[in-house]
């Protein structure tokens, strides 16, 4: 049963914790995703962040984009740093050195910082059961260093390290299913979200915040710069990614899958791929191959969610 919506156009937190003035590219949906999530997590939040786009656009010394306490240590360790923060808060409160208060810890990284170099630290932190939310802001490549492929780059995409050529059709591997890996840790809450569906994202952030244990949010973050689309099209492409099944919206609550978008039908994947510069070299047979895979994954997700 679908829960009553808690956020809407007329009723959502006005307050900002990722404020204006940052240096993100025009049309960046990644900072939008974090901004929306932070509205829900609220003031009593500490965020640890991996090196990457969001770190570099937000904190050129002596400036900062964050009005909550924030720390960056390195690329692959946002979850490990969060483990230290969470443990320190607990012991300092137990010892009475700081007042008892509900302070939420968020660790955030991009798709590279999550599914490649930071996977071990993330797995460790999820397994240990720290009470924190990990937010992967997934723009499907190493955009900060100039669009290199990651394990989260979709099949066929052109990046600077998966270029199409005589012997290549672009990215030759399928997008690593990071939410499924997170869910395999049997943590209480895993969800996918996309800022093109802001209230869905905020509802999931709320659930993540209220989880007693580790929670994982995987936010598809459309990147006009890296995807080679017009800057004003980021929200539209987020919707196409969801509606085509390239990035389905769902949550896994205590092991139970639930799709959080319409499930009657998907639009063809070609609707999503066309118009993106990173896919423009794809031939019809490759697009058909991708469609087959996406359809199968969608059916699997429906099966897991108990939809026939």
């Amino acid at each position: 049963m679908r829960l009553k919506k808690i956020y809407s156009y007329t009723d959502h937190p006005e307050v900002e914790y990722a404020v204006s003035g940052h240096r993100a590219c025009q049309g960046c949906a990644e900072i939008l995703g974090l901004r929306l999530a932070l509205k829900v997590f609220g003031k009593d939040t500490i965020m640890t962040m991996a090196t990457g786009c969001m770190e570099i656009i937000s904190t050129p010394f002596p400036l900062t984009d964050w009005t909550i306490p924030w720390i960056h240590v390195a690329f692959e360790n946002a979850a490990a740093v969060a483990s230290g923060v969470e443990s320190a808060l607990k012991i300092l409160m137990e010892k009475g050195k700081i007042p008892k208060k509900d302070i939420h810890v968020i660790a955030s990284a991009g798709d590279g910082g999550t599914s490649d170099i930071g996977l071990q630290a993330l797995s460790g932190a999820l397994e240990r059961g720290h009470k924190f939310t990990y937010i992967c802001v997934d723009n499907e490549a190493y955009m900060n260093t100039g669009i290199q492929r990651s394990s989260a780059t979709p099949f066929g995409a052109m990046t600077t390290t998966s270029p199409p050529g005589k012997k290549s059709m672009g990215q030759a591997t399928w997008k690593k299913n990071m939410p499924k890996i997170a869910a395999a840790h049997n943590i209480p809450y895993v969800a996918t979200a996309c800022p093109s569906y802001p209230f869905d994202l905020m509802e999931k952030a709320k659930k993540a915040k209220n989880t007693n244990g580790p929670s994982y949010l995987h936010i598809l973050s459309v990147c006009p710069t890296g995807w080679r689309i017009p800057t004003e099209a980021a929200i539209e492409y987020g919707r196409l990614a969801v509606r085509s099944g390239a990035f389905p919206l769902y949550e896994v609550e205590n092991g139970k899958y639930r799709i959080t978008q319409k499930t009657d039908r998907l639009i063809p994947i070609s609707e999503y791929l066309k118009g993106q510069g990173r896919f423009r070299h794809l031939t019809d047979d490759i697009i058909e191959n991708i469609q087959t895979r996406i359809s199968a994954e969608w059916e699997e997700l429906k099966f897991l969610s108990g939809i026939k």
């Binding site: 500490i46 640890t48 720390i71 240590v73 390195a74 692959e76 360790n77 979850a79 490990a80 740093v81 969060a82 483990s83 230290g84 923060v85 969470e86 443990s87 320190a88 808060l89 300092l92 071990q120 630290a121 797995s123 460790g124 397994e127």
Partner: peptide, 16 residues
């Protein structure tokens, strides 16, 4: 789960 995370967690704890 590793020494890399050991020192990273120490940084987080010390910062707190």
């Amino acid at each position: 789960e590793s020494e890399h995370s050991a020192m990273s967690a120490c940084c987080g704890a010390s910062a707190t």
